[in-house]
Design a protein around this nucleic acid. Structure first.
Lengths: 185, 185
DNA sequence: TGGGTCATGTAACACGTTACATGATTTC
DNA sequence: GAAATCATGTAACGTGTTACATGACCCA
């Protein structure tokens, strides 16, 4: 149900192919609604049948042919109605590391897993920084917020950044606790 | 695949019925691996067949009969091996509010949704505080960390707390941005 | 007398994952 | 010469969601 609206929302940025959308859902949208290419092709098929998106065939010579999708007025309206309704499902986080940590008996292994998570989080923050730069495009945050008509993409990006920053802080905390115990152990 | 280990990990706390586990997955485990009762019953059935948990029938007179599940040595070993492996899947967050915000055109509606989220986050933090008190059981954090042999449950609780705190900070930020724009609008 | 708790479960469906297939083109 | 990119898709499977059913008990 929500994937549907995530796809519609991503088409607010303009016409896109399934392949292009799969890139979006692998990077920016991944932070709050991940989806695989297969899910997207299935969903786009349905949306097209329901008249919420329109598909346009594009013949290509040196590349496989593709279909470009656009929001229809009906799709735009459906999305608008969705956006103002309170969410029915609470936020769901699935983090395998926390299962491992919950079960963990070996502090050395725990240490290694947490270090790995930190490296990964730093990498993600770097990528977010680049996305932010592309969005701001040389402007300050203030200027951007004044000029752009849609703030949504920026606010969701901020959420991704703050999630990873908090991730790092929590990791530091965990390492501290593990060290503490090692000192007494 | 991970639900399996989440169930095994929750049985580290001791014997439990499917119903009891469904409470755990609705509260503490919900922060990193939510699951419905139906998923748990299905999973427990499988785990019992694979010999990773053992089921014990308990006849009751004034309540429906129940089955109590315990980790077998094989289950404990399987879990231990899982815990030291690096996670194969990255953290996945699914947050409907962010889809709505991404698509949002109406700042008033956005404001309302964010306020609602803040109320909800504060409620969750309160509940976490109570879980924390129960865990610490009158001891300071330092005492607890020295005395308990498993720190996992405390570290995952900290993650839940830090997630909601960050959630609140981000919400404040969003409200600030919306106000900012309203002032210029 | 209506709703919540205890306790399990079935059935149907929706959603998500994995593996595979195609095949030219571009990049290292 | 191998791997990645573009671009789509099928098939099979595994996971997660929703609705429903049972039935006694407890509480206000």
């Amino acid at each position: 149900m929500s994937l549907k609206y995530a796809v519609l929302a991503s088409l607010l940025e303009g016409e896109a192919s399934g392949y292009e959308l799969s890139k979006v859902f692998d990077v920016s949208f991944a932070n709050f609604w991940p989806a695989t290419p297969q899910q997207l092709y299935r969903e786009l098929e349905r949306l097209a049948q329901d008249g919420l998106v329109e598909a346009r065939f594009v013949q290509q010579e040196r590349r496989p042919n593709k279909r470009m999708f656009t929001l229809t007025p009906a799709g735009r309206e459906d999305l608008r109605a969705f956006a103002v309704e309170p969410p029915r499902r609470p936020t769901a986080v699935r983090d395998e590391l926390l299962i491992k940590l919950q079960a963990m008996e070996d502090p050395e292994a725990a240490h290694a897993l947490v270090e790995e998570r930190m490296t990964w989080a730093r990498g993600k923050l770097d990528r977010y920084e680049r996305v932010r730069d592309r969005l701001l495009d040389g402007r300050t945050e203030d200027e951007y917020l004044r000029e752009s008509d849609r703030v949504g993409p920026y606010l969701t990006l901020l959420r991704g950044i703050s999630f990873e920053e908090e991730n790092l802080r929590w990791c530091e905390r965990v390492l501290g606790v593990l060290k503490h115990r090692a000192a007494w152990g």
